[in-house]
Amino acid sequence: MHTSFIVFNIIGLIIVIIAAVRIGMKISKASKQESPDAQNKISYDDCLAKNNSSFKYGTFTDTRDGETYHTVKIGNQIWMAENLRYKAEGSFAPKNDEENVKKFGRLYTWTSALGIPDEYTEQSPAKDIEMYHQIKEDNFQGIAPEGWHIPSLKEWEELMNNFPDNSNGIELRSECIWQHPGEDSVGFFALPAGYRFNNGTFCQFGKRARFWSKDEYGKTNAYRMSITENSMDLEGVYRSDAISVRCVKNV
């Protein structure tokens, strides 16, 4: 009886140890999945160097803050090949870490991206009919530097038309940072900066890229371009969310 009790306890201890090891492995795996650097062994610097040698990038310097950006022609459009970094009211560093800004740019609420009052987060700019018509015009500048503007929904659609209808955005995703490297076949260099909810929570850093359109989507939303490792689409999100901005050159 005593021997059986000892054996029973030993077996129970072994079961507990095995369970603890498995839980530890799951936690370790989850931690690695949350870290972009652990997901992809292609370094940012190597990725950028490869793009610099593969594409005929132009450059543009924002006179407001001296920030210089790569630019790239895709189809008939010229895009910034980096996320906007201009520090405006209503903008945030990805994951609330200013060291992320150089690579990932800043995150902007919709009203910040358009450079309009915060009151239009939950109501249409049509309240100010002059402002409304300005936003509807081609090349509406918003927070973009001089000579550039916030893309319209139509301009995002034009960019997407360069790729197959079933594209998941692999042509736009960078080869670095993402868990599954993109092809970045046009030099757009989309990086997963994630986004910020109005309550201050940062989400999907290293997993998702979102970019504003100037166009409204209902009363409290606006269109955004979204790129994940599995999809590319245009849909509405809350204007109070803070996401990335890519600028397109005036024509």
Rank of each mutant, 00 (worst) to 15 (best):
N83C: 08
H70P: 00
C176I: 03
D165H: 00
R106K: 09
W178R: 11
A113S: 06
L48Q: 15
P125K: 12
I129R: 12
E119Q: 04
E157M: 03
E98P: 06
E119L: 03
A49H: 06
V72W: 05
W110G: 05
Y132Q: 07
G115P: 03
D62L: 06
P145D: 09
E130V: 07
I177T: 12
L48W: 12
N100W: 07
E98C: 08
M80G: 00
Y69D: 14
N161C: 03
K50M: 06
G115C: 07
N83D: 13
P94Y: 02
W79F: 07
L84E: 14
A126T: 06
S174W: 02
F55W: 11
N162E: 10
F55G: 02
P164H: 02
W79T: 14
K50L: 05
N168G: 14
K50E: 08
P145W: 01
T63K: 15
C176G: 01
I116E: 09
G90C: 05
N166G: 02
F92I: 04
K103W: 08
F92Y: 15
S53C: 15
V101I: 13
I177F: 05
K136C: 10
L84M: 13
Q123A: 03
E130S: 06
A93S: 08
K154I: 08
Y69T: 06
